[in-house]
């Protein structure tokens, strides 16, 4: 179908090394762009600071999961062995935070691990199986050996001509516009 409509999503430039990406990211940040992203096959060391990202918020989810797990453990032991069906074993108290500690311990780790994984998914807004950036013909190579900087049209400073030439200036190879088809 030749009459498929599309909308402009972003300007993209590829780079061939982590160093080039790192240096270019610093210049994009300096220039004052705000809606942009770096794509790389590896987590590039120091790129977060270069892009002005704050520390990841995943630990909050881990902590929340851990606390929930610990008290869930306590609650089930208290409810099951001391409240709902008090069970006398070896003349020990019905409930104590000591003897079933392994249960609390394991549930703390279990819930914290779930918190971490789902926290990561939530913060990354995943699962999301469709994204305009996938339209870039070389996107697959960002998992292989290519690096990419994408500046979105949404960015207040975006300008077709200027952004493209800026990306070339900072060392970008094969600068192109990503278009998102709509039907």
């Amino acid at each position: 179908m030749s009459d498929i409509m599309d909308i402009k999503y972003a300007a993209a430039a590829t780079f061939s090394s982590a160093k080039e990406l790192y240096d270019a990211a610093g210049k994009v940040k300096e220039k004052g762009y705000s809606n942009w992203e770096c794509f790389s096959p590896i987590p590039v060391h120091g790129l977060d600071a270069q892009m002005g990202y704050a520390r990841s918020k995943v630990p909050r989810f881990t902590l929340a999961g851990g606390i929930t797990g610990f008290f869930t453990g306590m609650l089930i032991v208290w409810f099951m062995n001391a409240y709902d069906y008090p069970l006398i074993v070896g003349g020990k108290p019905y409930f104590s935070p000591i003897y079933p500690f392994p249960v609390f311990y394991e549930l703390t780790i279990l819930f914290a691990a779930f918190g971490t994984l789902f926290g990561m998914f939530f913060l990354n807004r995943l699962p999301r199986h469709n994204h305009p950036v996938f339209e870039h013909p070389d996107f697959g190579l960002t998992g292989d050996d290519k690096f990419m900087i994408v500046i979105e049209v949404e960015d207040p400073m975006y300008d077709d001509e200027e952004t493209a030439s800026f990306l070339k200036e900072v060392g970008g190879q094969s600068v192109q516009i990503i278009r998102e088809p709509i039907d």
């Binding site: 590039v44 990561m120 469709n130």
Partner: peptide, 11 residues
């Protein structure tokens, strides 16, 4: 839907 984005890598 992983995208190799630095924001993804960070988290």
């Amino acid at each position: 839907g992983w995208r190799n984005a630095n924001n993804h890598w960070r988290n």
